[in-house]
Simulated assay, not measured.
Amino acid sequence: MAISSSSSVQRARQALADRLTELCRGAGLTGVELAERCGWHPSKSSRIMNARTSPSPDDVRAWCRACGADDQAEDLIASLRAAEGMWIGWRRMERTGLKQAQQARLPLFERTRHFRAYSSWLMPGLIQTQRYTEAVLRAVQRRRVEVDDVAEAVAARLERQRVIHRGGRRFAFLVEESVLRNGIGGREVLDEQLAHLLAVGSLPSVSLGVVPMRADRSRMPVEGFWIFDMAQVNVELVSGYLTITQPSEIAMYADTFTELANLAVYGTNARALITTARDSLR
């Protein structure tokens, strides 16, 4: 990507900082004067105005009060919460367990009509088998979640998978060939998953592409991502869950998906790679 995957978050924070700066200047105040009115250290207002520090809701209320703009506080707090919601660390998202994190995404899947998913390390969640999902979520739970609600989380993800069989939706899945050989859960689980992949790939609403392993590719693998219509992109990173809504960045991910899709094989050729991966398990 030409810009970092967190640039949408930074843009949102900068936009809030710019609005607060405008309020300060509109009130005829310097940053130091505003800090004095709020009872802050002089450097705090500067850090907020330059988007180096994210204000709290109470900070925003104090800022608006100092500028004589109490009527704008709630709108600015809404912008603050929207910016914070773009990036959620796994610890925060999964503090009560995995089930809630799975259920929270259901409305997004239900309202989306065109799904595009690229995965460079695991099968996309919508086309995972129950045992594969259980292996994935169990690994997640062991690594970073104290609450063990894996069984409930698996059920929630399987419930979400029902959208793939509903009408009026299109699905395009791209996986790297290495995903076909990533044996999380063991050989039997992977073999079952690959058989399921062959079945899913035959659905009329589904386009399934496999990007072959080769030494002379023109486009390197990137982080896995989902595109929901052209309204939102979600990226799962090591440290957290990123939501992108900036149109220019969504377009970048859409272009990247197209580039990777052009490298992929489909139909008979994709099934041949899947079948070869299954044969290797035996």
Rank of each mutant, 00 (worst) to 15 (best):
G209C: 09
P221Y: 03
P124L: 08
L106G: 09
L197A: 11
R111E: 13
D149G: 05
L198K: 15
V179H: 01
Q103V: 13
E177V: 08
A135P: 06
T96N: 14
V163S: 04
D216M: 13
L174I: 09
R162Y: 01
R160P: 03
A153M: 13
T129F: 10
H196N: 14
A104V: 15
P204L: 07
E192V: 12
Q141I: 05
S120I: 06
E177R: 02
G183C: 03
V189S: 13
D149K: 05
Q103N: 12
R95M: 09
M213S: 02
A117I: 11
L194P: 09
A155L: 06
R144T: 12
L158I: 15
F109M: 07
R187F: 01
L174F: 00
H165V: 10
V175F: 05
A215G: 08
R162V: 11
D191L: 13
A117K: 02
R169G: 00
A151C: 00
R113Q: 10
L106Y: 12
K99V: 14
W226E: 14
G97I: 07
R162H: 14
L174S: 02
T133I: 05
D191H: 15
H165G: 11
G168T: 09
S119W: 07
R113G: 05
V150E: 00
M220G: 07
R143I: 03
D148P: 05
V211Q: 13
M123Y: 04
L174N: 00
E159H: 14
V206R: 01
S178Y: 00
S119T: 07
E176P: 00
R214D: 06
R116Y: 11
G125P: 07
D191W: 12
R170W: 05
R187Y: 10
R217A: 14
V150D: 01
V189W: 06
L98P: 03
G167E: 12
W121E: 13
G224C: 10
E110S: 12
M93A: 15
A155Q: 10
V163K: 00
A156E: 01
R143C: 02
Q161M: 11
R131K: 15
A172L: 06
G209V: 09
T129P: 07
E192P: 06
